[in-house]
Design a binder for these strands. Structure first.
Length: 305
DNA sequence: TATCCAAGGTAAGTT
DNA sequence: AACTTACCTTGGATA
């Protein structure tokens, strides 16, 4: 086992591991008490989180554990995970500068202040594509549960430090899944979407990362070729995996925020409303404002309000 | 205890 | 292009 820590003393805009991981943008991580997305941490924000994946560099199945403690990000892994963590958790973002370049209104400011240090994630493309296909009409905790079920059934098993971990399946592994197998994992009507998309990627017909480099709206359009991916899911993949920080996924919570706080941004169609709210949130880093508002409303606004 | 409802939407069919 | 409708499942709200 390798281990180390990343000092958070002088990171611009601070860093908050719990809100970054549990804000509904990433489904790659689990908390080691098994209660992620269900209850607040049992240890005052210093819980260990783990993720298992095949390393992009050599395909080697790997495990990373991480926790935030005493202004440090402590990690234990099957390899030197420092660079991977900087990438995954966007520790290279100048969050202070980003916030100063986005809109300053009461809703966004409150969200920034409440979850100070929350960062966007830079998750791997294929798992992000699949998890947000699964996200349609589904609660955050159940989306997370689906991804764990997919990993258990179709992913690599990795032993590390006396524990057994399950990596998210590769496209090739998930392409072997039948629709009925996926329905048994409670994916519901998303099962055929996941099966089709996994087969498309495994066959080399298209890859989500092919969108990198395209103009934002062209990239969003490109991703809709995957079955089960519409404009909203495409925006999530662009924002949480492919580095398009201007993307503003228009989900139920953001649509509610538009109705309550930015009614002039409702232009009817997804594309036009997206442009309007993106501009309102400050353009280049509008996705940061989106994710803060999403997390703030979901955590603080009761469903009936 | 039974019923209802909405959850980080999308695809397919109509107008 | 804009509008409708069907779609799995289930935790939590309501009767």
């Amino acid at each position: 086992m390798e281990q180390g820590f990343i000092s958070l003393d002088s990171i611009p805009g601070d860093f908050d591991l719990q809100s970054t991981i549990e804000s509904g943008q990433s489904y790659m991580w689990s908390r080691d008490d098994g209660r992620m997305y269900e209850e607040t941490p049992a240890y005052g924000g210093t819980a260990w989180y783990y993720t298992a994946f095949s390393r992009p560099t050599n395909g080697e199945p790997s495990v990373v554990r991480v926790r935030q403690h005493d202004h440090r990000l402590e990690w234990e892994a099957t390899f030197d995970a420092r660079d991977a963590l900087v990438q995954l958790l966007r520790l290279d973002d100048d969050l202070e500068a980003i916030i100063s370049e986005t809109v300053d209104d009461s809703l966004v400011r409150t969200a920034y202040e409440t979850y100070r240090g929350m960062r966007l994630v830079r998750d791997p493309p294929f798992p992000t594509l699949i998890s947000f296909i699964c996200s349609a009409q589904m609660r955050v905790s159940r989306i997370h549960g689906m991804q764990r079920a997919l990993a258990r059934k179709f992913g690599d098993t990795i032993k590390f430090d006396g524990m057994t971990y399950h990596a998210f399946p590769t496209a090739e592994q998930l392409a072997t899944a039948t629709e009925s197998e996926l329905r048994e994992l409670k994916l519901g009507y998303r099962a055929p979407y996941v099966a089709s998309t996994a087969k498309m990627v495994a066959a080399g017909e298209a890859h989500p990362e092919d969108a990198i480099g395209m103009d934002y709206e062209a990239a969003r359009e490109y991703l809709t070729r995957f079955v089960g991916v519409g404009e909203k899911v495409a925006d999530c993949v662009l924002l949480f995996s492919l580095g398009y920080l201007e993307a503003v996924p228009l989900d139920t919570w953001i649509r509610g925020a538009i109705a309550d706080h930015y009614p002039e941004c409702d232009r009817g169609s997804y594309a036009e409303t997206s442009r309007a709210i993106r501009e309102r949130f400050g353009g280049t880093y509008a996705g940061y404002a989106q994710t803060y508002v999403f997390h703030y409303l979901r955590a603080n606004e009761s469903p009936s309000e």
